[in-house]
Nucleic acid binder design. Structure first.
Lengths: 177, 177
DNA sequence: GTCACATATATAGCGCCGATATATCGCCCC
DNA sequence: GGGGCGATATATCGGCGCTATATATGTGAC
């Protein structure tokens, strides 16, 4: 699924600028399971405009670049609908943490402990964020939020129960270098 | 973390060809939280050889391309160690399923049900795979496997308990088109 | 017998991320 | 009051990496 499709999806929730769409992927409701960045979003919006799937209205701003507000067209809506009916790609998950942990038996114990601590703290923060419902959410957004919360909670629980497995395997470093 | 680093990591578990490294990412122990493909692995191995981080021994085969067996050098091992000591990138998770589910209220109910059924079946299969320990595994590999199992189990459980949230929101289609 | 699959390397095309450039405003701190 | 930082806003370049394809052959299924 290309960034163009993701942009169409973002615009279902209302007209937006490229900047705002980027924020949806960075902090917003999409951030936990999607990513896209300026380098792909701006070209995507240009292409979508050329293809008539979105329209672009420039709103002049004083002493700033014009705000370009994009809106879905009927064709764009159909195109998105179509894409959502196709075979979906399986989830992609990439974790440098788990990669690193594969080599726990080659790393100093302090490093492994710090890694787990860091991870637990960021995961708890995210779980916290995902625990707060928003009244404006569509049913799908609410579902996705709760899904994320369930997965993070399970991860945290697993880490706390099993961190000893990798910490014990790590290298007990000597007194000093 | 670049593919070159991932290749160094793969070679810690023993000498291997590009083909075998690819399999580790495709089916093997890395497949659940890493990805890399031919298009990046072969160039990476060439670059690593040039930089002296791995060595390459060509083993002639009858009526086939030579098998190029790569091995880590001391420098390569140090380089990996170094990379594992740097700040790690946060997990990346990309799900077209969750993206699609955001629009559950715009999709036919049959489609949503089929999506959930499909997902449950593939996740159960993966959870099954991850439930079987391997005696050759390093502690880290065992930990990563169990981690994956815990997360998949939680996902399955959540889906089964909450699928009604999106199925009820979906569109009850008319008798026929 | 042939069709699909596994072994094995390699590259071209293209999509996307990360970094950078440009410009201005508001806010905090000194 | 001034300096620096972060947010607002658009845009592009370089390079990395995925997808698909090319090449060549052995093996097992039907």
């Amino acid at each position: 699924m290309h960034v163009t499709t993701l942009c169409l999806g973002a615009l279902v929730f209302g007209d937006a600028t490229g900047y705002e769409i980027n924020k949806m992927f960075e902090d917003g409701p999409f951030s936990h399971f999607l990513d896209a960045s300026y380098g792909s979003i701006y070209p995507a919006l240009t292409r979508l405009t050329e293809e008539g799937l979105v329209t672009c209205k420039a709103e002049p701003q004083e002493r700033r670049p014009d705000k370009k507000i994009y809106s879905l067209t009927e064709n764009g809506r159909r195109q998105l609908s179509n894409a959502l009916g196709q075979q979906l790609a399986p989830d992609k998950f990439r974790s440098e943490f788990l990669f690193t942990v594969l080599f726990a038996h080659l790393l100093p114990r302090d490093r492994v402990r710090a890694l787990v601590d860091q991870r637990l703290s960021t995961m708890k923060e995210k779980a916290q964020q995902l625990s707060e419902p928003d009244e404006d959410d569509t049913p799908g957004m609410d579902f996705a939020r709760q899904y994320g919360h369930a997965v993070f909670t399970a991860s945290i629980d697993f880490l706390e129960r099993n961190r000893h497995l990798i910490e014990d395997a790590a290298i007990e470093e000597k007194a000093h270098a």
